[in-house]
Structures are given as structure tokens and as C-alpha cells.
Design a protein around this nucleic acid. Structure first.
Lengths: 164, 164
DNA sequence: TATTGTTATACTCTATAACTATA
DNA sequence: TATAGTTATAGAGTATAACAATA
């Protein structure tokens, strides 16, 4: 299924409208790729709505989260992990850096590489943003119980990081 | 998580590179929204690679599939079901119509609406495209067994079409 | 007054190739 | 010769508002 649009609707908006319901019995509606795409669209809409109050987009939030971790990722690692082109990472970090949330530090072991690290302000922003994202995920994924979310996490992890 | 890019890599490309592996233990990597986004990116890449030989994009394939069904969707229904803006549906159908795969028919019950129906050529193309898409899904979702795919379908359906 | 399809436009995201500095 | 980051740019996707025809 295609990349679905990031709607600006809030997580509480009604999402399956009457028109779409009539199509819910088609073969497409049972297709795993389609359901994955639509579920993702719902999830992104919820996360974007939650992050808007912090002036963050979901993409920047992901980078900030990885920078706020102790993992000290290089830009190349971020690109691979987030499945973005390295050239896209540049702008993403430029903006986070301009807002004082992350810094580029030289990698002592490879002078070509730059490590992305969160500043104190970045960690604070991440903590704040994370709370609203978690809240939005409760709305979004709360239709599943704890065990179901565990099962889903396991299944998705295997799809997201297929063994080579 | 952000909309992830549609890579033009084939489904058999190695997807979890060495760089990304180091980040696989971060909090982000266990986040449902992130895994959903990344699994979707993997799935889309596989489907796009499969559809390229038919000159179709995954978005057009979805519309064609729904038109080839007996469901006779209106453009508005397609928009809601696929979570696209109605204005995007126009160009999508324009192209499918120009290639002779679908036609816009007047809805006898509402003269504002247009029903999208597949032509014979459209149904043939859909049948052909479907075979390669199914094959690509085997590659993509084949890491799960039958039962796991069933469970995943159920869980995703509830996320994709949350009760109102 | 509201809805369907359409057009137009601005904006964001994505893909690609080239360049620099290091390895 | 290959890799990390960067720049530039063209193309695809997305969001928004307005319009004519119809309800």
C-alpha cells in the first residue's frame, strides 16, 4: 500500500468513516500490507498531533530520542536505523541543533564521522515530548490489551528488522 | 515515527545494516509506533519493487484492486478508505483511466458522485500485478508463519479501523 | 446549507548525484 | 578505493482552499 498521508486530525477523530466502511469487506481490506500502511497512518496522525504542541515533527522526535539515549549514534547510523537517506539526516539535525537540542561531536575514533548527542535542553524537551507521545500511543494502541501489544511488538520487530 | 522513505531497494536487500544494529537496544527500537513505521517501510519497498515491472505504483494498485472488486467505490469512498485527500484521488484515477484500466461511471443514485470501475484490461492488469505483489508479500511476511500472520492481521485491523 | 469531484498552489518529503574530508 | 557528511536539485507526495454541479 502507498505511503499514507499524515492527516492533521487528532487521535480522537473518527477515523473509519461511513464511506470507507462499505469497503471493509474487500480483499484489499484483509491484505497485510494494506493494514500495516493504514495502521501506520493512524499512528502517525496521533503522534504528530501530540508533538505539534512542542513544535516537533515525528521525524525529529525520533532523532532526539536516539540522541537522548546513551547510544551516541553517528549520522550514518541514524540514517540506516530510520531508513532515511543520509542527506535527509543533515537537515533534520540542523534544525534540532539550531534549537539547541542536539550537538554534533567529532567521533574520536573516526574523524569523518560525527556523533549526535542531546544537550541538557534536548533531554528536557525529549522527556516532555515523550510524555505526550506516550499519552497519544495509549489512545492509539489502547484498543489492544497488554498481552496483545507484546505480541504485536514481537511480530512487527521481526518484520521491521528481518534477519539477513 | 516519521513517514519512512520508500527505498528502491529490492525485498531481498539486506535491510538491517551494521550501523543500525547497534541502535537495536534503544528505547525507540521497542516503540510500537516506530516498529509499525519501519515494518511498513520494509513492506512498501517490497511492494514497489514488485509493481515496478507493471508500471504501477502501490497507490494506483490499491485503487485498481478496489475498482476490480465488485464494490464499485465512489471517489470519496476511496479517499476515506485509503486515507487520502479527495483531491489526490483525482490524479490517481486520471492516470489509471488514461491507461484504460478504470472508468468513471455516473452514480445512478447520486449525480454528484462518480463510481470507479475497472475495465476488462484493468482486471487483467490487476490479476497480473496481484501475482507479483503476493509473491513479494511472501518474501516480506514469510518470516512469520501462517498463524502469526493471522494474529498480526487481526491486531492490525483493530488499529487500522478503530471502533468509533 | 452541505457534499462530490475538481483545480490550483504551496509546501514537505524523497531520490539522486556530486563534492570534501577523511579512512 | 571506499566511506561520512554535505550540498543541490528534481521529482513525488501532501495539505489547503476555492469552485461548479448537485443534494
Amino acid at each position: 500500500m502507498g505511503r499514507m498521508p499524515t492527516s492533521s486530525t487528532t487521535a480522537t477523530d473518527d477515523i473509519a468513516h461511513s464511506g470507507a466502511e462499505r469497503l471493509a469487506d474487500t480483499a484489499v481490506a484483509g491484505d497485510l500490507a494494506f493494514l500495516l500502511a493504514r495502521a501506520n497512518a493512524v499512528s502517525i496522525a496521533a503522534a504528530n498531533a501530540a508533538l505539534a504542541e512542542h513544535g516537533l515533527k515525528v521525524r525529529q522526535y525520533s532523532v532526539l530520542a536516539l540522541a537522548a539515549d546513551q547510544s551516541r549514534p553517528s549520522q550514518r547510523e541514524l540514517a540506516e536505523f530510520l531508513r532515511l537517506d543520509p542527506s535527509q539526516i543533515v537537515a533534520l539535525i540542523d534544525e534540532l541543533e539550531a534549537r539547541g537540542f542536539v550537538v554534533r561531536e567529532p567521533d574520536p575514533t573516526d574523524r569523518r564521522a560525527k556523533v549526535v548527542a542531546a544537550t541538557a535542553a534536548g533531554r528536557r524537551m525529549y522527556a516532555k515530548a515523550r510524555r505526550t507521545v506516550v499519552a497519544s500511543e495509549v489512545e492509539c494502541f489502547g484498543v489492544l490489551n497488554d498481552q496483545e501489544r507484546c505480541v504485536l511488538t514481537d511480530l512487527l520487530r521481526r518484520l521491521a528488522f528481518p534477519a539477513r
